[in-house]
């Protein structure tokens, strides 16, 4: 099972008591606030989950994998996510010794 916005909205309906429309709106608003913060260059720190940070990547040489043609990959700003120590520890404990969870 994959967690999606629909699943999250359903949880808010069941656990928080929002109606279905409000629950959907709240889930959308949650991710929109995070996107807006990152878009304006702000990093986002969610304790117990992880941090979203921005990195400036310089231009580097690349290749079109289809044609093999060389072309530069332009400089860009990208988002990176670092899971919190707590989340990493919980994931490790839950999957100790078992390879390849998908």
């Amino acid at each position: 099972m994959t967690l999606t916005k629909a699943e999250l909205a359903n949880l808010l309906f069941e656990q928080v008591g929002l109606n279905k429309r409000e629950a959907k709106e709240m889930v959308e608003a949650f991710f929109e606030e995070v996107r807006t913060a990152l878009e304006t260059g702000e990093s986002v720190k969610i304790s117990g989950f992880g941090n979203f940070q921005l990195r400036e990547k310089p231009q580097r040489p690349g290749r079109n994998p289809k044609t093999g043609e060389e072309m530069p990959i332009t400089a860009r700003r990208v988002v990176t996510f670092h899971a919190s120590q707590k989340l990493k520890a919980m994931v490790e404990a839950a999957h100790a010794g078992s390879p390849a969870a998908e």
Binding site: T80, F81, V91, G97
Partner: peptide, 8 residues
């Protein structure tokens, strides 16, 4: 040991 790490 092998381990799983969250990825975004």
């Amino acid at each position: 040991a092998g381990k799983h790490v969250p990825h975004f």
